[in-house]
Design a protein around this nucleic acid. Structure first.
Lengths: 194, 194
DNA sequence: AAAGTTTTTGAATGTCCGCTCAAAATATCA
DNA sequence: TGATATTTTGAGCGGACATTCAAAAACTTT
């Protein structure tokens, strides 16, 4: 049996980046072919359809975010420090040259009317993120409080992901987030980044 | 000279609703034709191109939001009450059957790569919203504080507009927003709606 | 009612879309 | 090396897209 000549994971990541940047609808098979180095036929042979490729791209993106949250929270001195570090990261990504928000949020908004099922997939993945925050927080706070705090974090992330298009000044966002989530450490936005 | 047979404003609003729901890319001229009752040729005769129609739709949406903010803030007992009322509205819209977030936010995210100019137009309009909040707040707070508070409001609105896809329970959002913006009135989310 | 002007129509145009498939290339196995 | 299995190719398919434009309709003015 002939072996595949490409690295499936690398191809998937290229496709993911393109979908993330351009959106599902605006991303043509030809563009995907160019970006991945695979011909159209090969893409279909490997992934089945544009939609199935997109689903895998979403899964890939969601897995990475989920792991980043879990690892950061468990490796930090305490949960609150970990969350501060994560928010720090989200804010710092805002100043990237080709800023393109969050793949899951973009998908949710783009496809809510056109393809509710795909939109719902993105929603599910975001809920997993929230659950990861909550789980971490429950190790230091009572369940009720942890749940509220997790929602605060999610909403702060959403706010940053959208506000990132408005302002190129991170300082403003640090200050705003700090005042919106009063339980962040005192040094939030003032010390190291990442 | 023959008179036009349609109500330009009504046509524009129908087009705006379709663009708002489906997005720029996913909205075909044929759909717009069906929704507005005008044939493709008439749409081009009147608006020039799909993009120009879209620009007018954005202007229309932005004008309405701007006016709602200004009127609500100036007619309320005090600015903080007015802002509470506006946040109340944004949260309550979340439970609408065909929830579709905010036209400006969706445009910003959809077109940031594909058509930066249109995306920037949406960004400008959102900045006008923030300016309206700030202007209102400056009547009761020092400029520095008013500016921070306006940013808090914007970020809360962004958060709600995105979180609206996650949860069908408004209570959660009321509580979260209240804890994120501590200066809201005590009855926020507990008294009347609208 | 006739002439003049603008609006409205909707078929036609060329482009790009997602997707298919027979043929060619390539790898593995006997 | 030859037989077999899998992957890769890329031209080609029908359809949907934004846009155009000559002709028809509708309205205003004379």
């Amino acid at each position: 049996m002939a072996k595949k000549l490409f690295d499936r994971r690398a191809v998937l990541e290229q496709a993911m980046n393109l979908f993330w940047q351009a959106g599902y609808g605006a991303c043509s098979i030809q563009q995907l072919s160019r970006a991945t180095g695979l011909q159209a036929g090969s893409l279909y042979h490997e992934f089945g359809s544009k939609e199935m490729l997109f689903r895998e791209a979403i899964e890939c993106y969601a897995l990475v975010s989920q792991q980043r949250i879990e690892e950061t929270l468990s490796s930090a001195d305490n949960v609150v420090e970990g969350i501060a570090r994560l928010l720090n990261l989200v804010i710092s990504q805002t100043k990237a040259g080709e800023y393109c928000s969050c793949f899951l949020i973009k998908t949710q908004l783009e496809l809510s009317s056109l393809d509710p099922e795909l939109s719902a997939l993105a929603t599910e993945k975001l809920q997993l993120n929230e659950a990861a925050y909550r789980k971490g927080l429950e190790q230091a706070f009572p369940p009720e409080e942890a749940s509220l705090m997790a929602k605060q974090v999610m909403m702060a992330v959403f706010a940053i992901r959208v506000y990132g298009y408005q302002s190129n000044s991170q300082d403003v966002m640090f200050e705003t987030v700090r005042s919106m989530i009063p339980w962040l450490p005192d040094n939030f936005g003032k010390a190291q980044s990442s």
